[in-house]
Amino acid sequence: MRQKLLLFFITLFLTMIASAQCDIVTPNYYEDFSVIPNECWEEADSGDAESGPMDIGSGSWLAEGFLNNGLSGAYRINLYLANKSDWLFSPEFDLSGGPFQVDFDFGIMAWDSSTTAGTLGSDDTVQLLLTNDGGTTWIPLLTYDENSEVSVEGEHPIIDLTAYSGETVQFGILASEGEVDDIEDVEVFVDNFRVRNLITCFEPIALNANNLNFTSADISWEEQGTATSWNIEYGVAGFTLGTGTMINGVTETMYSVTDLTNNTAYDYYVQSVCGEEYSNFAGPFTFTTTLQTNFDIDCVGDGSLTQDYCYGDGGATDPIILTYTSADGTPLNLTFNSKLHGMS
């Protein structure tokens, strides 16, 4: 009994030391994990939901691109062998003045894959837990297990913290492999962790672009709330939100953007409209229009025409074919002036 009490107080003391590295945070709070290790987040190499984090200061949570896209910007842990039980835990938060919510990006991928979603082993779990008594007890808020299906695009769980309004809390993410050495070999990802005012109008998710042409693209998104219309803002990649082209009141989760410039990168953002409320803008999502390889020239109406065209070196195996058509059979006189990029 003495040993258990000693172990408990050592664990509680180490948890208090770790969380004391940063001041108690008053929401709204956002962490994108662009820098890992993060000075306000700690790891622990053992401990379960009953004992709390133990062996604080080291662990198997490492930097990786979210869903294996890139090499940094998210926390990731590999679950493969048995008996791993590693924590990632946040600074403390003062939830006075709420209500608040906690939300984050989450994904499970097959080992070293960015295209195949993973499934946890038979007794593997990943939990989001909360302590409101300085680490004495940890309360499960969300649990993923062998029955959880997470898409290849990941998901964005949102947990209402109204029940903890006025309290000081800390969050822990516990990845456990259990005692069974299953064949499942997966990577678990956490990114974009937020504690913020409770939202009733949610941002769109899963932004995408398809059917790219040299002057158009079909952009799409998914609604995670009850919005039935959306606002779009787009512009050349890198534009500042508020300075782009606005499209308001779109009533489908897909929109065809036209009158674009060929071979150009664009960003777009989407906002949900929920009656009198508006979500934050989701994005940016970046897409690039294709090279233009055919031209329709009205020489009768427009006279001579000068066309600037940027193209790559396709070579014999992938040639660039430019097609000019005379609608009435009148011969076309074409003059080409070309230069290498960066050279006259």
Rank of each mutant, 00 (worst) to 15 (best):
E277G: 04
K4E: 11
L207V: 06
N38G: 05
D145M: 10
L174M: 03
E155P: 00
S19V: 15
L67Q: 02
C22L: 14
T288S: 02
T258V: 08
D123K: 02
F8I: 04
K4C: 00
W61T: 14
D185Y: 09
L62M: 13
L120M: 09
A316S: 09
N294R: 12
M254T: 15
V300F: 12
P284W: 10
D112V: 07
D133L: 05
T226G: 06
G47M: 09
L62Q: 11
F189V: 03
P331S: 13
V257E: 11
A163L: 01
L128Y: 05
Y266H: 05
T116D: 04
F33E: 00
E167R: 04
T200W: 12
R194H: 12
E39G: 08
V300I: 09
T215Q: 03
I77D: 12
V257Q: 04
Y164W: 08
D328R: 02
R196L: 08
T131V: 05
M343F: 03
T168I: 07
D185V: 02
D160T: 10
L322A: 09
G65V: 08
L142H: 15
Q271N: 08
N68C: 12
V190L: 13
P37S: 08
I173K: 02
G134T: 05
T240Y: 01
D185I: 00
F106W: 01
D318Y: 12
D181H: 06
E146L: 04
A209Q: 09
W61K: 07
P37Q: 06
G342Q: 10
L291N: 13
E167Y: 00
T168V: 10
T258C: 08
G98Q: 02
G73N: 07
F295A: 07
Y255I: 07
G312E: 11
N263Y: 14
E276V: 13
M246K: 07
D318S: 14
F285T: 15
F202K: 13
Y29Q: 13
A117V: 06
L340P: 00
T162G: 09
T325E: 04
T243I: 03
D86C: 15
V152T: 12
N337Q: 00
A209D: 14
K84S: 15
Y75N: 06
G107Q: 01
A327I: 03
Q3M: 12
S72N: 06
M254C: 01
A217P: 01
E146M: 11
E149H: 14
L12I: 13
P91L: 10
S220Y: 02
A209T: 00
L198K: 11
V188C: 11
C201K: 02
F214C: 05
I199S: 12
F66W: 10
S338T: 07
W61S: 14
N211Q: 05
I320A: 04
N69V: 11
E223K: 07
V236F: 13
E155A: 00
I159F: 14
D191I: 01
C201N: 05
